[in-house]
Amino acid sequence: MDMELITNILFAMVRTATPLLLVALGELICEKSGVLNLGQEGMMLMGAVLGFIVTTLTGNVYVGVLVGVFGGMMMALLFGFSVQILNTNQVATGLALTIFGTGLSAFLGYSFVGQSIDGFHSINIPVLSSIPIIGKMLFTHDLLVYLSFALFGGIYWFVYKSRAGLKLKAVGENPHAAKALGLPVIQIRFMAIAFGGAMAGLAGVYLSLAYTPLWVENMTAGKGWIGLALVVFATWRPERILIGAWLFGLASILHLVIQGLGFEISPSLLAMLPYLVTIVVLVMLSRDPIKQKLFTPASLGKPFRAGD
């Protein structure tokens, strides 16, 4: 394999991994607060369609990004309201959000299918982009990819180093104890849910404005579910989410690489990899009660009501 091919593969890997990274980082924060939101797919699609529509109408990608992120957040707040105020089941509500978002986004974007826009362009960072191999891999992307790097850094700091991150983890580990300590559990969870929605919206926006600047019904094609798998795969750690997103991104372009090398393997079989790997990681985690306690937010998926 020659140098240029490797460089191009790594470049494509980072690009493909960006929506996975964004949505998984958002879900990480959400799950750290103890809330399991299965609505990733729906929130991403709403972000993607709103970002695309607004960009088409205003001609301004930045306004599109803002509205898309806002749309993802609104969807997440709908979920948060149901789960926390109306006390609905998290799994079923998240699923409802995915189904609803799929339908609503297709409905809203119906007349925008096939239109083209001027999406994000790549910006080569001077000096850094000329480093062999990693120069192209990391420093020749569009603005949203750089933003995802920055968000990764911010979330890494937030989870490991900040006081607020500790509070978030306290709520996720034991909401009752956190409440006894005087933490506003419902509010903190609302913020975590909203942040997760905003990140999913951004992931969707990236798909419709940068990755393939167009809108197609159901264009996320299961990326939200991979994001969800990624959080488990990464055992709820941000740095492993980055590595995992790159691995999963590589897996989804691997069939191109293998074809390039002259081998034949079905892309469908390769597309199964992320899901199978996630099941294996889940099993390894759950068979060991100590590991499970160490890594999984203890109250994940369990309801907490204001009155309790």
Binding site: G42, L78, S82, A92, T93, L95, A96, L97, T98, I99, F100, G101, T102, G103, L104, S105, A106, F107, Y110, E217, N218
Partner: peptide
């Protein structure tokens, strides 16, 4: 209208 209207109804209904 898009077939996805079915999902719109379904999602709202479940919520």
């Amino acid at each position: 209208l898009p077939m996805a209207l079915t999902s719109l109804f379904q999602g709202l209904l479940l919520l």
